[in-house]
Design a protein around this nucleic acid. Structure first.
Lengths: 133, 133
DNA sequence: ATGCACCCTGAAGTCACTATAGGGTCAAGC
DNA sequence: GCTTGACCCTATAGTGACTTCAGGGTGCAT
């Protein structure tokens, strides 16, 4: 399996796969006569794991840790739980921030009536002279 | 007003102010005999505008555009509305993504029962052999 | 032999800062 | 007059997770 196939199979770009190899997340595969990377099933599985973790928003450092934990089936599950719970807490923080942001923006959009900048409530809200806080 | 005062007045770090100057967002102020930057009220107002916009999640490119629009009071307000509406749409996308993510993570956390990795539902969900999709 | 899709390396660019190294300035206190 | 400390300066590199670019090699079909 060449790098392009692996990319298509996992939904990862070729550049990203090479990047993961350089980062030590994915082990360097064998090379054929033309110096092309040749991947085995184990690589596909590993990269799928990485892709899923990234899609769930884990950082590369967290993925590294999850891989380390997953590699030993005797390990306690607690480490995984901790990483996941911490990640959920982080997401909750981001959700709260974004919701607050959205509220402010929509409020400003709704109040914008005049046709020119001089009457624009959004610009007005951003400008220091009308500072509301 | 020196750079440190300006920073305290706007809640911006000294490094960030110099960065904004290098980026062309904030015009270069006069210098005193010691080559220190000396800021006027106009700089404070401009930087406040930038800070507010950034706090609302606009990118520096969007801030640049907002500043350009705000500079001419005769401009149509429509441009500002478009930038803001686009930004709200972007936030909505992020909110949906984060909510979906959170749901998946919590579902996995809740279902994690066994004490070791071998029984861990989170690792299982990340591993390709149990691919659910 | 020519085109095209694919592969390779190494380096630089992205975003919005943050940090670091190595220095100069200024007022207060000894 | 000398030191201490807070402040200021420039230039450069680092962050995360890639992406893009420059400049080339490979493999197969036409």
């Amino acid at each position: 399996m060449k790098i392009g196939e692996l990319g298509r199979a996992t939904g990862t770009s070729v550049e990203t796969i090479r990047f993961y190899e350089a980062e030590g997340l994915l082990s360097a595969p064998a090379r054929n006569a033309a110096n092309y990377r040749v991947y085995e099933l184990a690589h596909l599985e590993r990269l799928s794991f990485i892709k899923r973790s990234r899609d769930l928003g884990f950082t590369l450092d967290q993925v590294r840790e999850l891989l380390r934990l997953a590699d030993d089936p005797g390990n306690s599950c607690a480490g995984v739980d901790v990483i996941t719970a911490r990640h959920v807490a982080e997401i909750d923080r981001k959700l709260a921030d974004l919701n607050a942001l959205r509220g402010e923006l929509v409020r400003r959009l709704d109040s914008c009536q005049g046709p020119t900048i001089a009457d624009c409530r959004i610009i007005e809200a951003l400008s220091p002279k009308s500072a509301a806080e």
